[in-house]
Design a protein around this nucleic acid. Structure first.
Lengths: 159, 159
DNA sequence: ATAATAACCAACTAATTTACTAGGTTTATA
DNA sequence: TATAAACCTAGTAAATTAGTTGGTTATTAT
């Protein structure tokens, strides 16, 4: 388990996706980039990883974009963070349990314990839960309004 | 909140300290380095931070070393990790709440929420609790034995 | 058909962080 | 007085982060 800004970007992008998608509507990286002020190219890297883990589905061409493969309630924060922070070998032992003179080290023992506790916690925390928060919804609406006005008149039907 | 290998090193070192200290006996960075296979110089950097946050006390000179300033039961994993991963500005907003057009961003809202939940969890998890684990104690004893034998005959009284 | 849109892909890069090294000074003990 | 240890400063190689650049492919609307 690792918890860095990279994971935060991924979770934020996934929140944006969950907030803006619908059956008909896919969400483009461009719109996420505008809302969240993350570069498209960086989002592309993150979504390649998220897609590889089966969390999102990409649709090409105009009107294309990304969609969650599962309901937001069934996607945990743990899954998202783990998809992008894939350095699973958080111990120097690289998963081996014989790192220290052929036996397990204290680091290993402690960190796997601690790690599994945090993982469990984050696994119970679902994307769907988080976007329920009233404050999150308020911020999201303001972001949409801001981007819509920046885009001026055209395509009112888009949001 | 950030969770990286640096924090793991700090927690591991603090565990080692908690396991080996006593009223009379301080623990030198040298012995932690031997047990945990972390370089002394790196430990020095970590302990400078831990000391700055008042988690440990250093005693100079022969027979010197470090001690916890509080009982292990009263030191949380959160405190340790936060002492060394001091990049508090986990959001790009640097603590400001007006990062996006003078208003709070979604990243900020989400991450502070999530962050505070993880922090709360890690704050309830105490150093004392973790070293109670039977497996941790077993590993620790083996480490002591290994280092004692490596040191050959001299100073048997030392461990 | 063709233009536009958006995913997808590869390679490079600056800045930061991590983990460590080197070479000291200072303080307390035996 | 020698030694052990904390304490301090500066440097550094490797890894990671957060991009940029410059494409290609697939799909849709005109």
């Amino acid at each position: 388990m690792k918890l860095t800004t990279k994971g935060r970007y991924a979770v934020t992008a996934m929140m944006d996706l969950a907030l803006h998608q619908s059956d008909r509507h896919r969400v483009s990286l461009k719109s996420i980039a505008e809302h969240q002020e993350i570069s498209i190219a960086y989002l592309e890297q993150l979504f390649a990883l998220l897609k590889a883990k089966g969390l999102v589905r990409g649709v090409r061409g105009p009107g294309g974009g990304y969609q969650l493969t599962r309901p937001a309630n069934e996607i945990s924060i743990y899954e998202i963070i783990n998809a992008v922070d894939e350095s699973v070998d958080v111990t120097r032992c690289h998963g081996r349990e014989d790192c220290q003179d052929g036996e397990i080290c204290l680091t290993h023992e402690l960190w796997t314990d601690l790690s599994s506790q945090i993982s469990l916690f984050l696994d119970q925390l679902k994307l769907g839960e988080i976007i329920q928060s009233q404050r999150v919804r308020e911020v999201s609406q303001r972001q949409s309004a801001r981007c819509a006005s920046a885009r001026h008149t055209q395509q009112v039907a888009f949001n």
